[in-house]
Design a protein around this nucleic acid. Structure first.
Lengths: 197, 197, 197, 197
DNA sequence: TATGAATGAGTCTTCATTCAT
DNA sequence: AATGAATGAAGACTCATTCAT
């Protein structure tokens, strides 16, 4: 695919992203995408076969965009505890992001895929697993450096991510106050932080 | 509405429930419902205006069915801790229920409704709030009876329900082992249970 | 299927027949059929899944209609030679029928099906084989009754039907004069007819 | 048109020929041709306005190619009977050619054109007439040389070509054995060949 | 009440044709 | 000359909803 075509594809993905964020997955039609992108019906088909293909493109693009945020920033700072804060800060931002997020669409898509007994992991599952792994690794490192103190890192990470996922998904169905999210996150972190200061 | 009509409505609701459990909300068509109910297209319209109306009926019926289980049983038993166990047992069952549950459909529906800025609470929100209130009340009672020891019942209940909701929704996108759910629930309850060993 | 539905199906088939006779097979769209039948798009789909299904219906109906003509008339007359004349008369009518015939459509359809290596015989092939068998049987009977004299009935029938098929298909691409067809048919029959009278 | 352009046109025609032989006429799209030719969409339009134009080009090229075979060879040989054999040999080859032939496409095209009452002769008709004329001339010559003996050359040629056309078109809808075609052709020729035993 | 045939609007998808580069 | 991205019209198909019976 030519360079120009790649740019066009990227443009479609960016414009479509907002449509999925606004309408979820199932409710989105080719017409919605075509209108959001300002191209013709046939034009969209030059780059994507169907709504699902566009959605996959959006997700892939999103994950490329999202990944570097934390991992990229890590080497510059020596204390694990700061990575942890960064990680939770990102999680909080994601939870409170509201209508701008792809989460609803991802859940709709995952619900649908989970129904059909396919081998593949759902989007939600793979993202969840990735986060658990990352957090586990972070805590193990923190243990080594005595930044944190956690006896069962994998277990702890899982329990934390479950809570965060609960807030994330609830925030798409009701209003969660920033205050409440702050309180929750503090409570989650407390057990492994060094007592006092 | 005549008695016969009510029965018919109930029949439609029961048959339709399975369709929503299987296909979610958005994917369900009038045809699906008509076929599942074994009645005519016109017949369905006599009782419900659209798919959404049937779904609302299903949800309402479900909540009537679900509510009494625990609350109805409470008066007969003196120890709060047993209610708690019952409550968590139900939650666990719900989390592990898999494809038979309406959860996916309820989320799809709530996502959709949350998008449009309507005044009404989403299904998920109202169910969540109800559970938090119930659990809060239970713990307060437990405090009084010294069955449990919890300084911030509302706060604690919220935090517990968030975790449970996380597991509930994740279980529709990936496989959660019963073992893991047991461990999680025990960990959630531990802080307020009387120390024993 | 109810009686009424069968009638409707028959109506669609009759109206559609003319469309196929006029436009052939490949050029016919659902829209053409819908307009010819005076029903709605959706209405047609209640009875037929696609253009091909309608066409198959037309062909089936046609063959039911066509079959009795000759065979039904046979018992009433003792002399084979008259059946032969009747058979050839029908063939001639079919050849000269012009634009009212389904032949073009059947060829288009058979060309298409013959391309894909399917097990099934093409329409044209099965009709051809049927005619050859029928004519063979007729001539054998005629031999018995000494109405005609033909040493190789199967061979002869095949050769006759090939000629008739040639005329049939050519008549859809050019004008064949009735006179010419008469001459041809007489020439085909001559070898087996009793000399003179 | 420049020499280079002519070559390009010829290339398109050659590549497209196979597409028409494989898919017939109506089923062929510009995309098919573009892909078969390995040129751009726009490129094809520089030389041909539409699919029909390419098809006409293919047919014209084909007839130029086919014509010389027999006629060109004739002067070098004194005995008519050998030309006849050559002619029938070619016919037989054409009948048995199967999927490589343009016949289906030509019939589809002729059916379509015959439908619209245009003045022009259909492809099939003009090819048929040409063959009849040629065979008639051949037989007349044969009569003169006493190579064959045929009282009504035009009539005879017509009847022979009708049979051949019947076999040709049937062979696109069913399998004709080479044996059968041989037998048929011998039977057709027999009446005018010098008795020999 | 109950039926299910019928409608037509809406979506998906393909394709001939154009046009800026 | 040549490219191939882009267009939009046209066809296939589905579905919520209505209505005569």
């Amino acid at each position: 695919m030519s360079d120009k075509a790649l740019k066009k594809k990227q443009l479609i993905i960016e414009k479509s992203r907002d449509v999925f964020a606004r309408k979820g997955y199932r409710a989105v039609t080719m017409k919605d995408l075509v209108e959001a992108c300002g191209i013709s019906r046939g034009g969209l088909y030059l780059y994507f076969d169907c709504v699902e293909a566009v959605f996959k493109g959006v997700i892939e693009s999103e994950s490329k965009k999202g990944d570097p945020d934390i991992i990229g920033m890590m080497p510059s700072n020596p204390r694990t505890i700061d990575y942890l804060k960064l990680f939770f800060h990102e999680q909080k931002r994601d939870i409170l992001r509201g209508g701008d997020s792809l989460l609803s669409a991802m859940y709709e898509y995952s619900f649908e895929k989970n129904g059909k007994e396919s081998e593949e992991q759902t989007l939600i599952a793979s993202q969840f697993d990735k986060s658990v792994s990352f957090l586990t690794a972070l805590i193990k490192k923190g243990n080594e450096l005595s930044d944190v103190n956690c006896e069962e890192p994998a277990d702890f990470a899982m329990s934390v991510m479950i809570s965060l996922e609960g807030m994330r998904v609830l925030s798409r169905c009701m209003t969660l106050s920033e205050q409440m999210v702050n309180t929750r996150i503090s409570a989650l972190l407390a057990p492994i932080l060094p007592k006092q200061q």
